[in-house]
Design a protein around this nucleic acid. Sequence first.
DNA 1: TGTTTTGCTTTCGTACAGGATACTAGTATA
DNA 2: TATACTAGTATCCTGTACGAAAGCAAAACA
Lengths: 121, 121
Amino acid sequence: MEAVIKQERNLCITHILPIRDALDILSGKWKIPIIVALCVHKRRFKELHRDVQGITAKMLSKELKELELNKLVKRTVHDTSPVTVEYSITEYGHSLTPVINELRDWGMKHRDKIIYHPEEA
Amino acid sequence: MEAVIKQERNLCITHILPIRDALDILSGKWKIPIIVALCVHKRRFKELHRDVQGITAKMLSKELKELELNKLVKRTVHDTSPVTVEYSITEYGHSLTPVINELRDWGMKHRDKIIYHPEEA
DNA sequence: TGTTTTGCTTTCGTACAGGATACTAGTATA
DNA sequence: TATACTAGTATCCTGTACGAAAGCAAAACA
């Protein structure tokens, strides 16, 4: 095998690895939407449940636990009554802002493309 | 409900919608890795199969079809013998570059963080 | 006393993402 | 004649993501 091709293959693999790491943490239908909601403002469970449209309480609970484990989200319990729990983005969570912004920009452009040029070959 | 809160909720929802659109197209374990591989260089099926490590021929075939439907990837058949098929990124596919770069940057930082501060509270 | 609210958990179920393995057709090469 | 390479398909299977619906404990309100 030629050296150039070998090099290209390695380049390809090293490019993919960190992306896999990121996807492992962010993949699924709900994690990024939850992070976005919390970036706008910290929120309580019920508020999140309302604002992340379509999610069930079970999924919300499960996803929040995983995000907390990965230090992207912080959970704070206030001993009011009934107990209120507040979820907020951590500093580390905020480091995702550029990723999310790019994703949103692309999503908006894509939506425009689909709406205005739906059937182009 | 206060106007400010209502406004925040709308902000939240409009922020999430385009992200959902993007995720619908890019979600799953393989689509982004395939795109990255093709961004490095156009490739034939077997080459992709080798370079996107771990993917099965069935998944590769299926994902390529979906990417082609969304105009992110172009399929070209050369009538050599045996037939060779070449996959390449479209211009539209290249518009994902900023998203992918941010995702990779974050993935690299995350990997560093895990390796060097694995158990920080 | 019963209802509401909060923040979940539990149970049950389905659908699809993804994987393992084998196989195909056409050509070329040994 | 047999084997290998191309680009996939076909079958069968498993795991888990995700969803619907109900329940729960503690306090406050009516």
